[in-house]
């Protein structure tokens, strides 16, 4: 297993040498969304607390780094951590309120959506951070300002982030923390009865997940050199974050990555195909159909099924 992971990493590391510019940008997206999915997976997959407001953390992270860079000249490499920290604070607040008041299932979903929407409205009304127009970052091409002439730099950052998040989740699975989270997902009442500190663990998962998601915000801001409230805080981005681990298999180590490898190229292809004919939104229909199909036929996601196939092929 370890060899397989290292092998996969090695293949991904040399991949940019053979990719054209378009394929490279698709792969950056695959890795970026795999990273976001992995971050979400901690709280949404392992702990089973369905958050549909993770866009809030992307937005907070991106805005923090961009505003710090614009006003104090702080390099986004440090700003990224500050953004992650602030996102973690927000995650802590949402988690504290949600878990302290015992919101479960749909109520928790709605709480996260509401917080993300509040962030979006505040950001679009706060002139200091650009208001509804958003923030634009001047392109200088200076790596110290996290700007690159060459897209391959983004590829390696995305790869590093994905590897980092996956390593964290891998380590988590092997420690008491991860096992407790899974137990909480399966039967919270039983966990409480057995003396598992459910509140603390759910909160920890939320904070960790929002910190990692916040890092992605800076990546997003600097890769596209812009931040719009509707794009980074909106519900559509939250759905993008949630759907990959679900399709791949929520609460599995490889789920978000497999999900992203399935969905991102599919989204890009259908966007390119249907976009030519003026059929906008078609890739979202594909998402919708896939989501329905996964819920009905593969509620565990793709990874467990793939695992079974592999085991059958190689006994």
């Amino acid at each position: 297993m370890t060899w397989l992971a290292l092998g996969g990493l090695a293949v991904l590391a040399v991949l940019p040498a053979v990719l054209g510019p378009y394929a490279l940008s698709v792969f950056i997206n695959i890795l970026f969304y795999a990273y976001l999915g992995q971050a979400w997976n901690i709280v949404g997959g392992y702990a089973g607390q369905l958050s549909v407001g993770h866009a809030a953390f992307v937005g907070i992270g991106g805005y923090t780094a961009a505003v710090l860079a614009a006003e104090t000249g702080l390099t986004p490499w440090v700003g990224m951590l500050a953004g992650g920290a602030l996102a973690a604070v927000l995650g802590g607040v949402i988690g504290y309120l949600g878990f302290r008041f015992g919101l479960r299932g749909f109520y928790f979903v709605l709480l996260t959506v509401a917080f993300a929407e509040v962030c979006r409205i505040v950001a679009s009304n706060w002139e200091r951070v650009g208001g509804a127009v958003g923030l634009y970052i001047t392109f200088t091409g200076d790596p110290r300002q996290m700007q690159f002439q060459d897209d391959r730099a983004w590829y390696y950052i995305a790869l590093a982030l994905t590897a980092l998040a996956t390593a964290i989740v891998w380590g988590m699975e092997r420690r008491r923390f991860g096992i407790y989270l899974t137990a909480i997902r399966e039967d919270e009442t039983a966990c409480e009865a057995l003396g598992v500190p459910t509140f603390r663990h759910k909160l920890g998962a939320m904070v960790l997940s929002s910190f990692l998601t916040g890092l992605a915000g800076t990546f997003y801001a600097y890769r596209y050199s812009s931040l719009q409230p509707g794009a980074v805080f909106g519900i559509p981005l939250s759905v993008e974050i949630v759907i990959r681990p679900i399709v791949g298999g929520a609460g599995t180590l490889l789920g978000p990555i497999v999900g992203s490898f399935i969905l991102t190229p599919l989204a890009e292809l259908s966007r390119a195909w249907f976009g030519q004919g003026g059929w906008h939104g078609a890739h979202l229909i594909v998402y919708g159909v896939l989501l329905v199909a996964v819920v009905l036929f593969l509620p565990q996601g793709a990874v467990p099924v793939l695992g079974r196939l592999v085991r059958r092929a190689a006994p």
Binding site: G105, V109, V239, Y287, G288, V289, V292, V295, P299
Partner: peptide, 19 residues
């Protein structure tokens, strides 16, 4: 099925209808 699955299912239906 658990509530989560229903939420996701309806989210899928919503995406289909809207687009």
């Amino acid at each position: 099925a658990p509530h989560e699955m229903q939420i996701l299912l309806m989210l899928g239906v919503a995406l289909i209808l809207e687009n």
